[in-house]
Design a protein around this nucleic acid. Sequence first.
RNA 1: GGCGGCGUAGCCAAGCGGUUAAGGCGAGGGACUGCAAAUCCCUUAUUCCCCGGUUCGAAUCCGGGCGCCGCCUCCA
Length: 466
Amino acid sequence: MRLFSTLERGLVELPPPQEKRRVGMYVCGPTVYDLIHIGNARPFIVFDALRRYLESRDYEVIYVQNITDIDDKIINRAREEDSSPEEIAERFTREYQEDLRVLGVNPPTYQPRARAYVDKMIELIEELVAKGHAYVAEGDVYFSVRSFPDYGKLSGKSIDDLLTGARVDPGEKKKDPLDFALWKAAKPGEPKWPSPWGPGRPGWHTECVVMSRELLGETLDIHAGGNDLIFPHHENEIAQAEAASGKPFARIWLHNGMLTVRGEKMAKSLGNFSYARDVARAFGTEAVRYFYLSRHWRKPLDFSLEALEEARKAVEGVYEFLAEAELAGEGDEVPLPDELAGEVNLLEEKFHGDLEDDFNTPGALAALQGMANAGKRFAAGGGDRRALGAIARKIRELAAPLGLFQEERAPALSAQTEELIGLLVELRAELRKERNFGLADRIREKLASLGVELKDTPQGTVWTLK
RNA sequence: GGCGGCGUAGCCAAGCGGUUAAGGCGAGGGACUGCAAAUCCCUUAUUCCCCGGUUCGAAUCCGGGCGCCGCCUCCA
């Protein structure tokens, strides 16, 4: 498996599971001050799929995702709502869990909260101060960027270039404009924790360094997040972690492309966003996942209702095939004829080949579509339809790690309701025989409006739920 | 200004030195039907933003343009 790492600016090989089974993976999580929008969901879905694919390939993935529950935005929201930061954080943490469920994301192995790690953060900051990488200034603690020669290696920036653009705030206690806060002295009315430098709270995302160090060790395998986090967030994480440990912080850095709206980044501040749960409920969990996976994870992806609708239709198309194939494949096991089996095997190889090459999900999805198409052509050419069951099983098996094509579409109706629909279908058949099309069409239309779609096939009328 | 990315059919989107240039949506034609819907079959890029170059061979590599976007401030 090869993945494009931001640090190397190129593909990096992940050792095969025979050599290294355990993979430590850290994906930056939400700040719980509001519901997440659909753009925020991209890394959660894409890296969830990556994690599950690795697991399906015999890796044991320790998947960590933090919950940032100490932050200015939480404090502000609490003020607005006349609530407390704890309460806001608690509420939106629960909402976030619900969103993950709606998006079909598996729960992380660990979901640590910043508040539970303040002690460990203080330890790290003390360590950095002791090693001369950080200094205390009137109750604040700052990281000294100049003390870390590698600063800028992730984002490709040089300290000098950054300095040119940096503005020095008159009120700042920093020695150097690029230095960033590790610990902020408490202001009145803000949450605070005791520390060697007086009451305050952790500043920058020291939490990610501490949590990943505690749960995954000093060097983790994969660190992932949106590409808007490369600088300064992840650059600063590297500085803290590596200044403290002297070891590489992460082997592979993955950064997904942004979700855009008419070409512009979706962002709360721009107001061009939709809440993830609203989109998932309108189009369905799998349509949202398909939407994301139909575009390579590093590239920007443009959001629109039309694009989601297209994804929904593409998913439905595969389900149409699955429904037919599974119906035909019930009962006797019929093996695939050689030629078809060969084609399906080739597509399976393409599926894995594409995913192992920088997690190329669009290519992999095309392979699954190709399997369905091969099955359709085979049946249309007069092949034994019962063999299609095997293709359907293969598609479902391969797509499982991606969180696609896992729904059972059997109509969940009571026997009584089914009988009732059956009766109406029978009556309509009689009416059609008598060429009473007016009444027959009324039945069809009324049922359609109730979500029961009739299809007149040469073998008779069948119905499906929409 | 610095750093990074993107530009492939009507639209979305793979491809990363030799393939008939995947796949999806849409559109057109056909089968089926009382008419539909759904489904199925077929068709839909001699060409990959432009101009040069390297090569036997380039959408793919190099140089130069043009256009769009992200980061450099909280941000998935």
